[in-house]
């Protein structure tokens, strides 16, 4: 066994086989994902730099405390946990689709791809709700001596330090660092766009599997490549979740 292995190793780069033992498209998908990791990494590090340069930064538990259909209940991080769970589950169904593909199980691939697409769409729906809630949810903020009601946008941030004003009821804050909204919408938007393109890719894969394209080809390697992309989207969410919601 050991000598056989050594023989294989010595011929590894001499032509006739793929030195990395993967198909070209899959290798290139890995390198694309690596470059995409740098893009996301640069965005998140830029966010970190600005955050470290500020004396005050909003507490995510305070900003992200809403859940659909619960009115004004204070439920920090509940909704984003749901979103995280949706994405993890859709990643699992993708693994099972790839696994079914390895066994040339057309029905299995179709079933799990449908669940993956549903998971992706559910995540996008959640994100749309969260954005809408942040942009349209007004908060009383003291700006230049006047109380104004503003939402969270790329130019406005109502999540600054609280102030108490004699004769005023309720919670009043001062404007927080403007960069908060820009980074939040920019980075979650970039991630959401990845999810959207992932859903489109998965739908195309689903249609191709349905039509028997992969069955005729004799392998389901395309599903594997789409799967890599989809898992990467989940992977990026781990870090977006970490940087914007947890710490």
């Amino acid at each position: 066994m050991a000598t056989a292995q050594a023989q294989v190793d010595s011929k590894w780069w001499s032509g006739g086989k793929s030195p990395f033992n993967v198909e070209y498209g899959k290798l290139m998908m890995w390198y694309f994902l690596m470059s995409d990791a740098f893009t996301f990494g640069a965005f998140l590090i830029s966010y970190g730099t600005i955050r470290f340069s500020q004396n005050y930064w909003p507490d995510p538990n305070e900003v992200f405390n809403a859940l659909p259909f619960t009115g004004h209940a204070n439920l920090p991080l509940a909704f984003v946990s749901l979103m995280t769970f949706v994405l993890i589950v859709s990643s699992v169904t993708m693994v099972l689709a790839v696994h079914a593909g390895h066994h040339n199980d057309k029905k299995g691939v179709i079933k799990w791809m449908i669940w993956t697409v549903i998971g992706g769409i559910a995540f996008l729906g959640c994100q749309a709700w969260e954005w809408t809630h942040l942009i349209t949810g007004d908060h009383a903020v003291l700006i230049n001596g006047e109380i104004k009601h503003i939402g969270t946008t790329v130019t406005m941030n109502p999540w600054g330090p609280h102030v108490t004003i004699p004769g005023q009821e309720g919670h009043i804050s001062t404007p927080g660092p403007v960069a908060f909204g820009g980074y939040f919408f920019g980075i979650t938007g970039f991630h959401g766009f990845h999810v959207l393109s992932g859903v489109v890719i998965n739908i195309v894969m689903l249609i191709m599997a349905w039509n028997g394209t992969f069955e005729r080809k004799g392998h389901y390697l395309m599903i594997e490549k789409a799967g890599l992309y989809w898992h990467f989207v989940d992977l990026v969410w781990v870090f977006v979740f970490l940087c914007f919601y947890l710490i």
């Binding site: 990395f20 033992n21 290798l27 990643s91 699992v92 693994v95 799967g227 890599l228």
Partner: peptide
């Protein structure tokens, strides 16, 4: 999930 652990070490 992405099976990177199962690939060739150089990859």
């Amino acid at each position: 999930f992405m099976h990177l652990g199962d690939e060739v070490k150089n990859l």
